[in-house]
Computed example of a mutant assay.
Amino acid sequence: MTLAISPAARAAMAEWLTHLRALDGRADLTVKAYGADVAGYLSFLAHHRGGTEGLAALAQVPLSDLRAWMAHERGRGVAPRSLARSLSAVKGFTGWLAEREGVDATAVLSARAPRFQKKLPRPLSIDAAADVLDSVGDDARSPWVAARDTAVVTLLYGCGLRISEALGLTGADHPLAQVLRIRGKGGKERLVPVLPAARAAVAEYARLCPHDLTATAPLFRGTRGGPLNPRLIAAAMERTRNRLGLPATATPHALRHSFATHLLGAGGDLRAIQELLGHASLSTTQTYTAVDAARLMEVYARTHPRA
């Protein structure tokens, strides 16, 4: 379908995306995805309604037209989860536009997203996580690269960091303090305690690293001295899980899931875990209660004498 978006709508969309990036602090990839979602929606409306319309009309799209767009997307094979994300983007743009134009966008804003089965995180067991940390550097080409990979995965599991957050550390963060100030999604800051094992792993990496870890440069480096590419950590995890016989779900991000699940299983407070992970909503963190419940049911079914 050829895009047929009016110049005014394009300008409004660009202004909204700038707002998301600058004021809401959304990540560049998120802004790009939202822009593609809204552009597709506006293009559909232009074809569906036989031409471009004013901005006020775009903010007051009737529910029938919105449903026609959703049906069109499903007909293209868009999965319910992806369509729910697209609808979230459309709602965000429409709500912003309606406020700017002073009109009512209730029809769009009240639309329900398609239902889909949420995928539960797939954490590693405590023993498997320990095995990964102990052996992730075994296939490295040099001792300093082995120490680097070990330090990164130790931060993911020991502190619950996202890979982007771990690789966002700079030389100024070394040596690691007992508490790190992490800037996560949306530019939100949080304080994360650092285990002695994580501090020791990073210190060993810094001792062996052949590159000058200046205060303003990335802490974790590639072999040529540039910023460490996250794909290299993913590759190290892939080699490790194959060697240990772990499932394909044993990824770098699974270590963050494991951090949360193991804390919860040990009696950790859900609100505290939310703060440690940097989740904006408690409902996101509550996913881990389902994971823990699923694990308990597996143990029950496997071990109960009458099961």
Rank of each mutant, 00 (worst) to 15 (best):
D127V: 15
D127P: 08
A130W: 09
A130N: 14
A130L: 11
D131Q: 15
L133G: 01
L133R: 10
L133W: 02
L133M: 11
V136Y: 11
V136H: 05
G137C: 06
D138P: 06
D139W: 12
A140Q: 13
R141D: 10
S142A: 14
P143N: 09
V145R: 10
V145T: 13
A146Q: 06
A146N: 07
A147S: 13
R148F: 03
A151Y: 00
L155P: 06
C159L: 05
C159M: 05
G160E: 04
S164V: 11
S164P: 03
S164F: 10
L167I: 01
G168M: 02
L169R: 02
L169C: 03
T170K: 13
G171K: 03
G171S: 12
A172I: 13
L176A: 08
A177Q: 14
R183K: 15
R183Y: 09
G184F: 07
K188L: 11
R190G: 02
L191Y: 04
V192A: 00
L195N: 09
L195T: 08
L195E: 05
A197M: 11
A198T: 00
A201E: 09
A201W: 06
V202F: 07
V202E: 05
A203C: 12
A203N: 09
E204S: 10
E204C: 06
A206C: 15
A206G: 01
R207D: 15
L208P: 10
C209E: 00
P210I: 00
P210D: 03
P210M: 04
H211R: 06
T214S: 14
T214H: 13
A217S: 15
P218E: 06
R224V: 05
R224H: 11
G226V: 02
G226P: 03
G226N: 08
P227S: 12
L228I: 09
L228M: 10
N229G: 05
R231Q: 08
L232C: 08
I233Y: 00
A235G: 08
A235D: 15
A236E: 08
A236T: 07
R239G: 11
R239D: 04
T240E: 01
R241C: 01
N242P: 02
N242R: 15
R243Q: 08
L244W: 08
G245K: 05
L246G: 01
T249W: 04
T249P: 10
T249H: 13
P252D: 11
H253D: 07
